[in-house]
């Protein structure tokens, strides 16, 4: 029997951008429903606020970063404080700039198809990394 490591998923938190809410929702969909036994996560800011055990996350797990905009905080933060991500995903590759006006940023219900598409693509990357 071959040991297959779990895959790390790091989403930007994107509080001020609806793209961050979508990347977060897609990541949670994979973690809780699509690949619950094959994936792990950690809060992105813990790479700075935490200790060495947390900063070793992307060294131990092949890691997918899921960003909500072109600032790529998840990819940059993971590379800077932990290790280079195996896969870097960016919502803007799917839907352009999604940082809408303030009063729209929580309304991701209308984006459920987009969340589903990104979640499926994350799951595909998880499967490929574990092959």
């Amino acid at each position: 029997m071959t040991f297959k490591p779990k895959v790390g998923l790091i989403s930007c938190s994107g509080e001020a951008c609806s793209g961050g809410n979508i990347s977060r929702a897609a990541t949670l969909e994979v973690l809780h429903h699509l690949r619950p036994n094959e994936t792990v996560t950690i809060c992105l800011p813990l790479f700075l606020a935490g200790d060495d055990a947390e900063r070793d996350f992307a060294k131990h797990f092949p890691t997918i970063t899921i960003d909500g905009c072109n600032k790529l905080c998840a990819a940059k933060g993971t590379a800077r404080y932990s290790s280079e991500p195996a896969v870097k995903m960016n919502l803007e590759d799917y839907a352009g700039n999604y940082c809408r006006s303030d009063d729209e940023r929580r309304r991701i219900q209308g984006s459920s198809k987009l969340v589903g598409k990104i979640a499926q693509d994350i799951a595909s990357h998880v499967d490929r990394l574990r092959d």
């Binding site: 509080e15 001020a16 992105l44 905080c73 940059k76 303030d102 009063d103």
Partner: peptide, 20 residues
């Protein structure tokens, strides 16, 4: 606070931007 009736007073920013 930032998106509802107090949005004239409060705002938020993305936390990870502070680590980059």
């Amino acid at each position: 606070l930032a998106d509802a009736e107090y949005s004239d007073t409060f705002r938020t920013i993305c936390l990870p931007l502070l680590m980059t």
